[in-house]
């Protein structure tokens, strides 16, 4: 694994372990100007992801 891949993997793992408010605070403290998408968008996204995971498993 390259240095760059490791940075991305660590970053993803780190923010995955946070809840929405912790993640937003963390990203803003780094300097990202971020706004979480509306809850409805997040729900659709998570439902779609769920379907994809299910379809892959089948």
């Amino acid at each position: 694994m390259t240095k760059e891949d490791k940075i991305l993997k660590d970053f993803e793992a780190q923010i995955k372990g946070m809840n929405l408010s912790e993640r937003t605070r963390f990203l803003r403290e780094l300097g990202f100007n971020v706004t979480p998408k509306k809850a409805s968008v997040r729900r659709i996204r998570s439902r779609r992801c769920g379907r994809r995971i299910k379809a892959t498993a089948e």
């Binding site: 660590d10 780094l30 997040r42």
Partner: peptide, 30 residues
């Protein structure tokens, strides 16, 4: 991509601000 697509955030910063934030992540955590 991870922030926007996987974690559904809207990122509004300029290219310079976003690059600075990525670099600050590297400095702080790598």
């Amino acid at each position: 991509d991870i922030i926007q697509r996987d974690f559904t955030y809207v990122v509004k910063g300029t290219a310079q601000e976003n690059q600075c934030a990525v670099m600050n992540y590297i400095w702080s955590y790598c």
